[in-house]
Each structure stands twice: as structure tokens, then as C-alpha cells.
Design a protein around this nucleic acid. Structure first.
Lengths: 120, 120
DNA sequence: TTTCGTTATTTCTACAAAGATATAACGACC
DNA sequence: GGTCGTTATATCTTTGTAGAAATAACGAAA
């Protein structure tokens, strides 16, 4: 039932990254969740990317991927204006965020339960 | 509760790769399980790697990583001999295989249950 | 002693992914 | 009309990873 005694580094861990994918291309995962959270906070793709230490290009690619796969965009953007423009998480975006957060919570619970089995 | 109606490609999927890790370095996962299965079958790292379309180098690195992290090696090898040498999965190796197989089964059950929630 | 297929290891090459850079367009505000 | 910070996009460069290739060592069997 246990396995940790077989290895030198006692603190064995279970890790997994949960992703929602469609037709090979990823739709949602932990990185995209964090990106949306930061866009919500800053109102800007640029600022959100900087906060995460991510290039604008990568952030934009993620958003483009999500939006093109979604019926309605998860994020809307506008260029120009007094602050130069900005980005907003739509209702649909919020819905996906909430769903994934719940999913991840249940997933973490599973991993923690199984982690107990690893040790003794 | 559902989310699939928000996306164009109806067949949404949940995907995750479960790994046992220790001190940052991976210890066991689906690729290593498959490798051990093939070594069991062929008695050779070389043949196992070929069966999987994997380079010998990569296979050897996986084995080296597992063995150095384990108290006792999961795989033993010998060079030379009538057939040139070979590799054998040890009792400890089998124990890890069995554990991971059970773990993965429970994991798949979790994913399938959650996948139902994605649709309708 | 030669042959053979394997393990074990290093080095080189190629390619893909990531990042940096550059540039255009936009529109509210002054 | 000029300024500003942003979105949007193309292109170039760098870097990291994977794989290919080469080589040595090994030991049973012929």
C-alpha cells in the first residue's frame, strides 16, 4: 500500500497539472487561470503579463487560443482611449474561471488523499 | 455546473499526467511505467526503447534517474554475455509498477467522473 | 582470440519553442 | 494635432531540448 520506503528522499509528492483540452489544443489550465486573474486585477494584458513574468506575446497567444475556441470571447479588448486601451474578463470568462477553480479544489483533495497513502 | 456550452468543439476533455516526484526530480510516471513494462517483456533496454520509439539515451536517463533515487535499483543491468547483456526489473521495480498502476486506475476514475460534469 | 549485441557515455547537430525587438494602429484627452 | 499606453502582429535571435552518431567496455560462446 505504501511505497516511500523504497526511495531515498522521504518527502515523495504526487503532482499533476489539470487541463481542459479540446481537439488537441489546450483550452484552460492553471496558467490561463492566473492570467485571467491578473487581467481582472490590472485591466490590461500588458500589465498582467508583466506581473506574471510572462511575455506579452505569450499572454496574447493564450488569450487568442481561448477566445477562438469559445463561442463568445472570454476576454474582450479595446485599443486606444485615455489609458491606451485595456482588457476585460467577460461573464463567460468568469464562468470558466469559477468552474476551473472548483474543479481544481476537488482535484487537490484527491491528490492530498492519495499522498497520504504514499507515506507509511 | 457545466461548461461545454461555452465552447465550439463539443468534445471537451479533461487531461492530466500523474507523476510521483521527489526533490523536484520526477521519480515515476506513465512513460516510466511503459518503459518498465517493455523491459520486462524484452529483457533489454535497447529493445524496449525501440518498441516505444524512444532513443536509448532517453531510456537510459530515465532508468538512471529512477535507480539513483531508489534505495535499491528498480532495474538491474549486465553487459556482455552470450546475448550481449540485458536488463531486469527487480522486485522493488515490480512493487512500484503495481503501486502506480493502482494509483492511475483511481485517478482515471476521478477524471471520468469529473468529465461527466463537463458535458451537460 | 574473435565475434556479437548489449550497456554506458560523450559529443555534435538540428529543430522547435521562447524571447526580444520593431512597428503599426487606435482613440480619449490635453 | 500631438501625446500616451495599450493592443496587435511580424520578424529576428537566442536558447534549450531531443535525437543522432560515435565509441568504449563487457563477457559468454564459438
Amino acid at each position: 500500500m505504501s511505497i516511500s520506503h523504497l526511495f531515498k528522499n522521504a518527502p515523495l509528492q504526487l503532482k499533476a497539472i489539470l487541463r481542459i483540452v479540446g481537439e488537441e489544443e489546450p483550452i484552460f489550465g492553471p496558467g490561463r487561470l492566473q492570467l485571467l486573474e491578473n487581467i481582472e486585477k490590472t485591466g490590461s494584458i500588458n500589465q498582467a503579463a508583466k506581473n506574471m513574468g510572462m511575455s506579452y506575446k505569450k499572454a496574447w497567444q493564450m488569450i487568442s487560443s481561448m477566445n477562438t475556441q469559445a463561442e463568445k470571447p472570454l476576454i474582450t479588448t479595446q485599443t486606444g482611449g485615455n489609458s491606451g486601451g485595456g482588457a476585460v474578463v467577460t461573464d463567460e470568462g468568469h464562468e470558466v474561471m469559477r468552474y476551473y477553480q472548483g474543479l481544481q479544489k476537488r482535484f487537490q483533495a484527491f491528490l492530498e488523499e492519495e499522498s497520504k497513502n504514499l507515506h507509511v
